[in-house]
């Protein structure tokens, strides 16, 4: 069968998530969930010299949400905090490299939205409105 969606890279990240776990002393953290489908991620970030020095995530949900968050952690490790906080959704969608229906875009960007909550919370800046944070926590749907 044409296995576009579950391409090897995505399944590799799903089965062997990178940077999985938690940090003992994170500088900022956040939790995001999509109650409509039950996807959940938690992200811990450590910052040194204005850059993301360490990042860990945990969670459960569909392959897209978990693999995308795993890819995200590799994408932003070492980036200046401001740059990571400004990362557009398209960056993670491109990273996944698979066609996504509108419904599954939410799965794909759950990790990114959660990371933004963590970084903005850490910096004391408000989350951009389009990310729709509710009570400092990202909840889609």
């Amino acid at each position: 069968m044409d296995d576009e969606l579950y391409r090897e890279n995505l399944m590799d990240h799903y089965r062997h998530p990178r940077n999985h776990g938690t940090l003992e002393h994170p500088d900022c953290e956040a939790e995001g969930k999509n109650p409509l489908c039950g996807d959940e991620v938690e992200i811990d970030v450590a910052v040194a010299d204005g850059r993301i020095s360490e990042i860990r995530f945990s969670g459960n949900g569909c392959a897209v949400s978990q693999a995308a968050t795993s890819m995200l952690t590799e994408l932003v490790a070492g980036l200046p905090v401001g740059e990571a906080a400004a990362l557009p959704s398209q960056a993670i969608i491109d990273e996944l490299g698979i066609p996504l229906s509108a419904m599954r875009v939410k799965c794909a960007v759950l990790g990114l939205g959660t990371l933004k909550v963590a970084l903005h919370r850490g910096a004391g800046t408000p989350l951009p409105a389009e990310w729709g944070a509710d009570e400092d926590e990202l909840v889609w749907g």
Binding site: M1, D2, C37, D39, N60, C62, A63, V64, R104
Partner: peptide, 21 residues
């Protein structure tokens, strides 16, 4: 522990229409 959305998406490749959620 496969997420139902993943199941439904793979089934769609078989033209099998089911609801997940």
């Amino acid at each position: 522990d496969v997420h139902p959305h993943d199941i439904a998406e793979i089934l769609d490749r078989h033209a099998v229409c089911v609801r997940a959620g």
